[in-house]
Design a protein around this nucleic acid. Structure first.
Lengths: 127, 127
DNA sequence: ATTTCATTTAACCGTTTGGTTAATTGAAAA
DNA sequence: TTTTCAATTAACCAAACGGTTAAATGAAAT
């Protein structure tokens, strides 16, 4: 398996993490629970949205692994888990490295656009 | 303005970037145009989806600033712009630093949950 | 000037999302 | 055991999403 390849599972996880972070309310939740654990009701009052709305956001964040919910007495305490964030940063960071696949990538680059399967020149640079 | 605060503009940009990265096809587009510029048709054939579908994805990526589209002859060449990715990484990375707001954050943490506006003890830790 | 053709826009479709209120759950308090 | 109440689920709604096919656009080629 080449260095740059990725499993379906990893792909879905990345989609879940980026999707979770795409909503400003959910990023706000992270910014709060990161500092200290919060109950669902505390978060709801912070954002002036209903309890069920917060509950749904928490489910999304939980599914992405970004937030952990632990029962504490009659409350649920939400805390931050940085691990999925690291995986997301890793993906972004890899896009900044040009020679990600090293030799394979180099060879592919040098050969690309010289020829095609049917022999037609479809190289846009040549126009 | 405190160190951790963020403008509406920055918030919307972050939502656009994370939202763009949430789709596996769009991440695939980035992985390809990052290595070398691609035409829209080339990308469409890579993913076996229609041309308009790719065009829509490119619009999302363009709006997020992650992809640049430049006319080259009768083609459009799509290339990668790493800058928005860096901003996204920066946000995630800041969530990993506990004392982001330094003194203000420390004071807030020490005082929190001791008292509330109406005097009621709503500290979940105390139950 | 006309034709060709890469790309985008328009119109549409089913699913997902982010919100609501009302009903349900289930553990703590009484 | 009964009551209380934090949180979730159910049911619903409008808007956004990701895809399609058909039509429009606009620059290059003829």
């Amino acid at each position: 398996m080449s260095k740059g390849s990725i499993t379906t599972e990893e792909t879905e996880k990345l989609s879940a993490v980026f999707g979770a972070l795409a909503d400003p309310t959910r990023r706000g939740i992270i910014e709060r629970v990161r500092v200290e654990s919060k109950t669902v009701a505390e978060l709801a009052s912070d954002f002036a949205i209903s309890l069920p709305a917060v509950s749904k956001h928490l489910k999304v964040l939980d599914k992405a692994g970004l937030v952990h919910r632990a029962k504490s007495g009659k409350y649920i305490l939400c805390s931050y888990n940085p691990e999925p964030g690291r995986a997301a940063m890793k993906w972004i960071n890899e896009q900044h490295r040009f020679w990600q696949d090293s030799f394979a990538g180099l060879a592919e680059f040098l050969d690309k656009r010289k020829t095609t399967e049917n022999g037609t020149d479809n190289n846009p640079d040549s126009m």
